[in-house]
Amino acid sequence: MKRLFIILVFAILCFGQVTTADAQCKQQLVYQCASQTEKAIYLRDFNTKLKREKDVDETGMKWTVVLNKGTQYKFSLCTPDGFQDQVVLTLYDSEHPENSKPWGSTFDNSTKTDRKSFDFLCNKTAMYYVSIRLKPGVGDKKSCAVGVLSFVGKSR
């Protein structure tokens, strides 16, 4: 009976962990990320769970977003502690594909460094894509990430 009780407690604990890890980022991280954008006005967020089962798996998500000409936007990326250098936020469209020449990314391919955010001065009103994905070769643990889009201002 004692053994059954232990199994029951273990099952509850394991189950709780699975459901938490499988979810998107918690509201607290979204709010923290949205509040970090100094002097910029929060517009929307992109929240996704991240997990790579196999090396070839495409992780994360993509979203469509209309960006407007003459507006400077800020794209920020936030992750739970320990995952900062494993996740990339990319801004792209059909003519500037995600994997070859995107408009912008939180990973600078030339210097191989990560940045928490980048600004995009939009000169063409159109539909763009924002993706948040794990870098190739990482992601054996379940995680999540939040991207925040904010309005910095109009270009003068």
Binding site: W103, G104, S117, F118, F120, N123, K124
Partner: peptide
Amino acid sequence: ETETKTYIDSYGQEQTVICQGGQS
């Protein structure tokens, strides 16, 4: 042509601005 510029914000952090080439 698209240009990438950097500047130092009020917290002393380097920030990147991507200025999209062309215009509508």
